Computed example of a mutant assay.
Amino acid sequence: MQLPVFAAAAQALHFDDLHLNPIVLDIGFLQVHWYSLAYIAGILLGWYYLTRLIAQPNAPMARRHADDLVFYATVGILAGGRLAYVFFYQPDILLHPLDILKLWQGGMSFHGGALGVSLGIVYLARKEGLSWLRIHDYVACCAPFGLFFGRIANFVNGELWGRPTDAPWAIIFPSAPDGLPRHPSQLYEAGLEGLVLGLVLAFFFWRTNARNQPGKLVGIFLLGYGLSRFIVEYFREPDVQLGTLSWGLTMGQTLTVPMLIGGLYLVATASKRPSIDAA
């Protein structure tokens, strides 16, 4: 008797039938990947949206600060994201240190990238005498752009696929083992971490007084991302080199727990911090 997931394989959509190519442009000596364009699009759209946010009354920084922050954030995303991936997900790369620089091959950790951006924000705030927590609030509203494009790039690359399923929208990814139909978990993450979380943050920024309560928006972001990632991990195939850890959670879920705790604390204590009266 066939299990449902095997029976569904005959009707499942094959990834190759989508005719997606991870390489946008190939002229021999130069290859442009969707993965790279996803980061560029996320950073540029995030910067543009940030300039719209700080144009509102009582912004925590000026336009010149936002322009400087783009550089610090880019360095933080690339360095933090790559190093965290290497240390937490694939430490074998340390045996070949130059491979750490091969960002075009994929392998970035959101948690590390977020930490890198946070360090850049703290540096800018201390250098310019600004409120690091309020800057975090505004930057958090821009992060879903990068998350959305990054997950779409993961899908185009045919990587980070989901667990086997007999769902009618399942996809057979050629790089996945056994040729089983799997959840397109990259798209689940793009929808939750990118679209849904972005809309939630936009609502709280534009329709409530949250931006004048230091820490509330970044707290909402941490909670929203943490819950989204924790849930999607049940549909996403655990990293082959790690699997489900001994305490019953994947590495992605484990790294998300501190974010959930921090987000809950920031939201719960936001009303106790000195608020910024709207002009």
Rank of each mutant, 00 (worst) to 15 (best):
T74M: 06
V75D: 05
V75H: 03
G76E: 04
I77T: 03
L78W: 09
L78E: 08
L78Y: 05
A79W: 00
A79S: 12
G80R: 03
G80P: 04
G81Y: 01
G81A: 13
G81W: 00
R82C: 08
R82N: 12
L83M: 14
L83N: 08
A84H: 08
A84V: 09
A84I: 08
A84D: 06
A84M: 15
Y85Q: 11
V86E: 04
F88D: 02
F88K: 04
F88I: 14
F88V: 15
Y89L: 07
P91R: 11
P91Y: 05
P91C: 09
D92V: 11
I93W: 04
I93R: 03
L94C: 05
H96N: 14
H96S: 13
P97S: 08
P97W: 02
P97L: 07
L98Q: 14
D99F: 06
I100P: 08
L101G: 12
L101P: 09
L101S: 13
K102Y: 14
K102P: 05
K102G: 04
L103D: 03
W104F: 09
W104R: 12
W104I: 08
Q105S: 12
Q105N: 13
Q105G: 10
Q105V: 04
G107K: 03
G107V: 08
G107D: 06
M108Q: 07
M108D: 03
S109P: 02
S109Y: 01
S109T: 08
F110R: 05
F110K: 05
H111G: 08
G112P: 00
G112N: 00
G112L: 02
G112C: 05
G113W: 01
A114M: 15
A114V: 14
A114T: 12
A114Y: 11
L115K: 04
G116S: 03
G116W: 00
G116Y: 00
G116R: 02
V117S: 01
V117F: 02
S118K: 02
S118A: 15
S118L: 15
S118D: 03
S118F: 15
L119K: 06
L119A: 15
G120P: 00
G120E: 01
I121M: 04
V122P: 05
V122Q: 09
V122K: 09
V122H: 10
Y123H: 12
Y123G: 10
Y123V: 14
L124S: 01
A125C: 11
A125W: 03
R126I: 09
R126Y: 13
R126M: 12
R126Q: 14
K127W: 10
K127M: 12
E128G: 10
E128K: 15
E128C: 12
E128V: 11
G129K: 10
G129L: 05
L130P: 03
S131L: 07
W132I: 03
W132M: 13
W132F: 13
L133V: 14
L133T: 07
L133D: 07
L133R: 06
L133F: 10
R134Y: 09
I135R: 02
H136Q: 15
H136N: 15
D137A: 11
D137R: 03
Y138R: 13
V139P: 00
V139Y: 01
V139E: 00
A140M: 02
C141I: 14
C142L: 10
C142E: 03
A143P: 06
P144M: 14
P144C: 10
P144S: 11
P144T: 11
F145C: 09
F145R: 04
F145Y: 14
G146Y: 00
L147N: 04
L147Q: 11
L147R: 01
